[in-house]
Design a protein around this nucleic acid. Sequence first.
DNA 1: TCAGGCCGAC
Length: 457
Amino acid sequence: MTLLPAKKTTRRIASKISHHFTRTRSSTRSIQKNRHERPQKPIIPFISHLKQIDDPESALRLFHEYQRQGFKHDYPSYAAVVYMLSRRRHFEALQTFLDHIRDNKIRCQETIFIAVMQHYGDCGLSDRAIQLFKQIPSFNCNRSSESFNNLLNVLVSNGRVSDAKDMFSRSSMMGIRLNSVSYNIILKGCVRNDEWVEACSMFEKMLDRKVPPTVVTYNTLIGFLCKKGDMEKAFRLLDDMTRKAKYPNAVTYALLMEGLCSIGKYDAARKLIFDMEYRGCKPGQVNFGVLITDLGKRGKIEEARSLLVEMKRRKFKPDVVTYNIFINYLCKEGRATDAYKFLVEMQVEGCQPNSATYRMMVDGFCRIEDFERGLRVLNTMLTSGHCPRVDTFCSLIFGLCEMEKLADACFVLEEMEKRKKEFNSEAWEALTRHVCEAEDTHALLLLSELVIDTHDD
DNA sequence: TCAGGCCGAC
C-alpha cells in the first residue's frame, strides 16, 4: 500500500526533471542567440519543485536526483531542504543533511540554524538545540546575539531556566553581547518560576548596565503581576513606564484587562478600552479578545456577540483568534451548529480559519455526534493543509463506524495512515467489529493492509 | 529573536 504511491511519485519526479532539463536547454539557446539582451532572472526549478512534495524521503531523493542530473545546488537549495526536514520533524535525516552541508563547505546563514533550533525546542529537544548552537561556527557562520537569544528562549520554554541563566552569565566567553531581548527572556524565565525578587533584581541589572528596557520588558513584569491579581503594582509599573517614555502598547493594556477580568472586574477592563484610546493607544484585536474570552467563560455568548458587532461598527476587523473564541465556547456548550455559523461568517468576511478553528469544529461536531458534518469539516481541513489530532481522527472513525458508514470510516483511516498517525485501541476495536459484522470486502482488505503496515513499522 | 486574546501538545 505504501510502495505503490512511492513508485508513482518517483515516476512523476523523473518526468518533471526531464521536462525541466529540456526547458533549460532551450532557454540557454535563446540567450546565446540574443547576446545583447539582458539575461533573464534564473528560475529556481529545484525549490519550486520541492514545494510540491510533502514527504521528506521524496524531497531528499529529488535533491540527489537533481544533483545526479548535473544540477548544481546552491545555498537556497540547501536551506529549502533544511527548512522542510525540520518543519516535518525528520531530525535524523536533518542531521545527516546538515553533516553533508558542513562536509561540502556550503556557507550558511544564521537564520537556518535559528529555525532548526526553534523546531528542536518545540519538540522538547533542547539538548540538540544547544549542540547545534555550539556547532554554528563549524558551518563557516558567525554566531550573533540573535541565535544566542533563540537558544535562551528554547531553554526557558523547555523549563530549563537555570541552564538559561547559566548560559546568560557565560555569554561574553562566547563572544556574545547581551541585549534587551536577552534580558527579557531571562525575565520571562524568572516570572515563570515565580521568582519575582530575582526578576526585579534582573531588571535593576539591566538599568545598571545601560541595557534599555523595552515595552516587552515592562509587559513581562506587568503580565506577572496581573496573573497574581496584584493590580495596584501593575498599574504603578504602567505609570513608571509612561514616565520613562516607554509607551504602553495594546498588549500592555490587554494584560491589565486580563488581570481585571480575573478578579471579576469586567466593567473596569471594558473601560480600559476607552482609556487607552484616550491616551493615544489604538485598541487591537487582542483587547477585544480578552473581553470576549471573559464573557465566553461566563457563558455570556450573546453579550460577546454584541461586542463583536460593536467591533465591526468601529471598524476593527475581527481576526481568526476572535472568531475562534466564539467557536470554542459554542462547541464546548454543545452548540456546534451555532459555532459553524461563525465559521461561515468569518470566511464571508475574508478571514481564513486556522488549525485551531478546524480542530474545535471537528471536535464540536463529534461531541454532538454529528459525524457526517464532522467529516465534511475534516475534508475542508485536510484540503487546506491542516491536520487534526489523533484523538479527533479516532472519535470520527468510531462515530462513523457506529453509524455504519464504513466507507467514510475507511477514508478517515487512510488519511490518518497517509499522515503516519497511529490509532488508539478503541478505534481499532470499533473498526474491526464493524468490518466483521458488515462483511465489507473493501474495508476488510484495507484493514488487513493497515495491520500489516502497522506491524512493518 | 523577547511580551499578548483561541486549540492543545508539552
